[in-house]
Nucleic acid binder design. Structure first.
Lengths: 331, 331
DNA sequence: CTGTTAGCGCTTTCAA
DNA sequence: TTGAAAGCGCTAACAG
């Protein structure tokens, strides 16, 4: 609890050198005579001097901070993205400033515009449609976006949701499922991609698809919508859920309703959150490699910041995780 | 992509006033004549002026940023804490700079000391023992700590782990369990408190307690240790796990091993992570109210920052969540 | 190798 | 109600 923290001038005075020398010394920008370096070292430690990062940032224009905006940090998909991104950032001397938009895009633009003034770059996961995002290109800071973009010239990192969905559908089809349903979440930009992959597969096989739509990508929504899917006259024999959270909620409620998974109905999801492996039955899902996506986005952003050239789109291949929630039938 | 962002001086020139006037105007520190305010408003919007927060921070010494340090952001307990803390921070105009120590305390001190120079205050969750934490009181920034402290004069927010553990044990005891075991995590500072609560209950009833210790508070560890707990000659009839993650991992593996929960063995945990409700059987646990803890810690910190007096310790009462993983026996 | 000199963009007395 | 002036703590040419 010092009265006033020592400044670079105090150090300069104590070591009998100029502030420029102190500055260069602490930044390792230059070597000095042993005598000077010794004086500097002792002055710094005896004063307990710490360089003020704010002053430094103001002049260099760099904050060593990256903004990361996600939709809901309690969703394991996003926690993992954050984990991966944060690890890479830390390794390279950066910190992460988090924005959790909590699925409410109203203040998103303001929030991100403000954020952009305090960071060296940002990584954004958003529900906005591409045409609502033009302002992002105006932001005068490097930015990496999660998801693929057709128009906007922004570097992106995306999972291949179309092919992940195709794989999942193909898998269900080959196991003999005939009445497949999709419990989607149309507010998401990835919903269409997943739906596209499912349709491509089922259309080719001449199989019908029933679609349900959730209001939120959550455990509670999967639970809530279960009865209407499972207790109708046309119960599907397989359900593809928009994500694992919904799948887990659905499976629990199905159990309560006396519908056995996978005996009566197969269930699959997306994301490969850790918990899907620990339910009974364990959930078959598409691993989107969340942590790796976060790490890749951060690597890409830091490359942009360093001025290195980067691909516009980095795709991360999804991977099917076969588990017990899926069962062969009519074989 | 402007060449150079407009500064307060550009605005002053465009509006024909001094920079001091612009400064006061944008900060709402003072009202001006309608003529001046109009000129200011139009100059600001036509130039697209944005106040540079770095310059402002340097001079005011406030960054409107709070540092939050947690042990593992993919653990739902911490995601929820972050959620609660972030929400409160945002509501009051603050952002959260996240530190994920990833259960490795080696660089923790350095990281936090550096962090302290970039934020207005910080909230810390740490595995450090109290005597290793004295340096925290030297940090010249408000700080709120998670967990109770006996010596250090730091404001804290803590769950009452002792009483939570007591409740849990009492519950098991009243259901007739006789051979209770604890799968703990001794690296954690809360492990002792939980163990204390368990012991207080069991000792009073003259019941023995077997203790196992995990290397990490994770799903994988619960899974790994299951066999040695369950396949020994003295299988317990109830297991209290350090947290829900371990409990879920344990339950899954128990199933694989042919041990039925709760028929053969009751299992309970701590935290009340959302996923415990969606397994079969659903997990009985102690709700530590993670999100509320995060929110409370942030409220407390912001109060300290505003200079308001705060209690040293805020305790959040834990709550027992009864679910199917526990069963009456020998009744 | 080391120092001098200008500021970065903003806030803040203090005067007018 | 408005402005002049003095920096915040630091870096970045440029000189020597």
């Amino acid at each position: 609890m010092k009265k006033t923290a020592p400044t670079i001038r105090d150090v300069a005075a104590a070591a009998q050198v100029s502030t420029a020398t102190v500055s260069k010394y602490i930044n390792g920008a230059q070597r000095f005579s042993p005598k000077v370096e010794a004086a500097l070292a002792s002055a710094i430690s005896s004063l307990g001097y710490k360089s003020n990062p704010l002053a430094k940032s103001m002049i260099t224009g760099r904050t060593n901070t990256i903004g990361l905006s996600v939709l809901d940090i309690t969703n394991p998909h996003f926690s993992s993205i954050l984990k991966g991104a944060n690890r890479v950032a830390n390794d390279q001397g950066y910190s992460v400033l988090l924005v959790d938009t909590e699925e409410t895009p109203s203040r998103e633009r303001r929030t991100l515009e403000d954020l952009s003034l305090r960071v060296d770059g940002m990584i954004v996961f958003s529900r906005m449609r591409e045409h609502e995002m033009a302002w992002m290109t105006e932001i005068d800071k490097p930015l990496v976006f999660f998801g693929s973009l057709s128009e906007l010239p922004l570097p992106t990192v995306a999972s291949d949701d179309h092919s992940g969905a195709f794989m999942l559908s193909q898998h269900l089809r080959m196991l003999g499922h005939k009445r497949i349903a999709y419990l989607g979440f149309s507010k998401s930009r990835r919903d269409e991609e997943r739906l596209g992959g499912i349709r491509e597969c089922l259309d080719a096989a001449g199989l019908p698809l029933t679609i349900y739509d959730a209001d939120a990508p959550s455990l509670a929504e999967g639970e809530r919508l279960c009865a209407s899917i499972v207790l109708g006259s046309e119960r599907p024999d397989a359900l593809i859920c928009y994500n694992d959270l919904m799948a887990l909620g659905f499976m629990k409620e199905a159990e309560n309703l006396g519908v056995a998974v996978p005996h009566d109905l197969s269930v699959v999801g997306f994301d490969n959150i850790p918990y899907g492996k620990y339910t009974t039955p364990a959930l078959t899902t598409v691993d989107l490699q969340s942590e790796r996506m976060g790490a890749t986005a951060m690597e890409k952003l830091l490359a942009v910041i360093r001025g290195e050239p980067v691909e516009k789109l980095t795709r991360i291949a999804p991977q099917l995780m076969l588990r017990a929630s899926t069962m062969a039938r009519r074989a």
